[in-house]
Write a protein that binds this DNA or RNA. Structure first.
Lengths: 209, 209, 209, 209
DNA sequence: GATGAATGAGGATTCATTCAT
DNA sequence: GATGAATGAATCCTCATTCAT
């Protein structure tokens, strides 16, 4: 379509640049408003207006309001996944280190993406199953690890992998949800430390079931 | 007014009985419909009609739709609290037994109150802060226990009580939510076992923090 | 019905006394609430409860809410008419004195029946034509006087009696309405004086038509 | 945006024209329906449908039903004020002529804006304080004149300006209300004549206070 | 006569989405 | 591509009134 341009692959003409810029502004504004006032209390036209375009334009870029919501989440999740993958590049010396690293990535991400966390737990996200998808995705990833752990003999066999995965996801997300709503009550380090210990060996001293 | 009746304090006249019965039917029907179709997709008049009364009657017994929702939850939570208190009457020999008993009560409760669990996690409950109240209540109770555990030296001091409490609540509720939605994937015993182990010592063998 | 009583005409049995007392309390309470919160914002059950009876009882005494409203007004208007008739017993020496006396009765009545005035001008009274009836009644009375005045040659013939009557009624009622809402701004004497002058010869000095 | 157009300031594009036209139709239809059936008995959707648009469109142009009512009144009142100001441009030779001119403007306006008068006295207008505002506005204007008259010595000092102003407003509005409801009973000229005389010197011959 | 639980019609308002310009 | 006026389905809640007890 832009084939007239001699270097079409690299250079974008003004229209394309403007379109991309508009889309970016909608995502940004949506993130901001959804996080601040809640998804249900943010009108599609609010986002459009705040982004400096007409409502109709929003619908040119996204199928519907939920489409915008999903796109915002997708971007955020992709970033999180990227962080998790980067973490995986430098393998941990032992499972304990791996769990700590994993926890740290999540907590740091929540710390720097408060708005995204608020949206993730927004009732509307839940209602439209947007956040369930993410929860299930994380649970599936963890379930895999638990199964590996069991196979490697480092996780006790009495554990049901699916249940455990959902338990850990619940623990992580609930804490992150609570923490982003009450950031002053605990430091990031404290949250990381506590979650890591809980994930590794529960709260009890020299614990064995 | 009922003074003719020899046992006026216990006996209710027909009108009172009818009122109480109507209220009970509304609570029951509300639980059923809210759980099945979701709170937002259940009209106030749906509940009333299904309960065999007119809409106005619902508003005679409850302030509004949310009032009905809260009442349903309150009844359920009171029942759960009762079960937890009964459990507390026969003190566990050791912390591990206490955690197992606590977990068992929750899982059994979820098993026999599926509808209530579905409502607790309904987006509308979340949106109206009905479920947040319950989450925070549970977290507060657990926080107390964690603090006691630290004082008694059975919980490692590196743990932040508030974070840990929210973590455990998140773990429990997420698993119960998932399990009541997918009851066939794990047995109650397996869920109890896994949650108990996770709460006690995490998933790992001979764990060390 | 009470014929068993030897002096049925004078003595009322307990039931009758109670019924009359209940009716009186409903009228009193209705006047109070209607005046304070407005007719539309006062529920039938509000009045009943405040009067210490059940809603149903209100409907035993009055056909409906409007019936209560009418009864309250009727009592007030009868009282006003009584005052006007008493005034008519001692005929004024001249038309000017008559007008002044008439005005004074109205203003004094408004002063001591603020609640009734508020109800008279309540939108709901207007809507249900309750106050229009009164307005028209007053206008009809005044129209008669104007016609007499024309016949007696003391009122100029260019005046249309119906128009004049409505004009004077409007003047009186608007002032009373305003004054009962803002009682501090003018004294009763000042209101009487001003209205009397306006009714007699308009505001202007040594007036000439 | 319309910069291509040689006379952009005056010319409106099709969309703007359509919006203004829609608004005008809503105002017109609202005036018609409110006057005919009363404000309370006219549904918002009635107005919209009769105006050939959907309900939502009404709420696009006006905050709510009352907003439409206020807009209708505002337009009418502005027109009346314009007429009164035009009248003030050619000053009357004497106070009597001024009063007559003022009265005439009001009566002629009522004659040609019957619907607006009906709405002004609609209980719903009263209830929402829409008409009180107008009454008070007129009273404030008249009060000013009375004060001037007193200062100029042409109005007798015994008159309280606020009371007199409300009295005259009440007289004028009550007559106009009655007359627009019963237009056949008196001619416009007769109404003007009677009101003028009443305002100037009261109904009595060679009157003395 | 008194009670008060039950009735149920009725209407304003919102906001995601469309489509003619 | 961008615009933004128009759409209209959808639902909550009130409260005057009744009538079985």
């Amino acid at each position: 379509m832009n084939s007239i341009h001699p270097n079409a692959a690299l250079a974008l003409n003004a229209r394309d640049r403007s379109r991309i810029e508009t889309r970016r502004r909608l995502l940004e504004t949506g993130l901001e408003l959804f996080a601040r006032q809640g998804v249900a209390d943010t009108r599609a036209s609010d986002v459009a207006t705040a982004a400096g375009v007409a409502v109709g334009t929003l619908y040119l870029h996204f199928k519907d309001k939920q489409g915008l919501l999903r796109a915002i989440m997708r971007e955020g999740v992709e970033e999180l996944m990227g962080a998790l993958q980067r973490m995986a590049l430098s393998p941990a010396p032992d499972p304990a280190a791996a769990v700590r690293a994993h926890t740290e990535v999540l907590v740091r991400f929540a710390e720097s993406h408060t708005g995204l966390c608020r949206i993730l737990f927004d009732p509307e996200s839940v209602r439209k199953n947007v956040s369930t998808e993410i929860t299930e995705h994380l649970a599936a990833m963890l379930e895999l690890r638990v199964r590996e752990g069991i196979a490697d003999g480092i996780i006790v066999p009495g554990i049901d992998p699916v249940v455990a995965a959902h338990g850990v996801v619940g623990m992580l997300l609930q804490v992150l949800d609570w923490w982003t709503r009450n950031p002053g009550i605990a430091t990031a380090d404290s949250v990381i430390e506590t979650l890591t210990r809980l994930r590794l060996s529960g709260p009890y001293q020299g614990s064995e079931a």
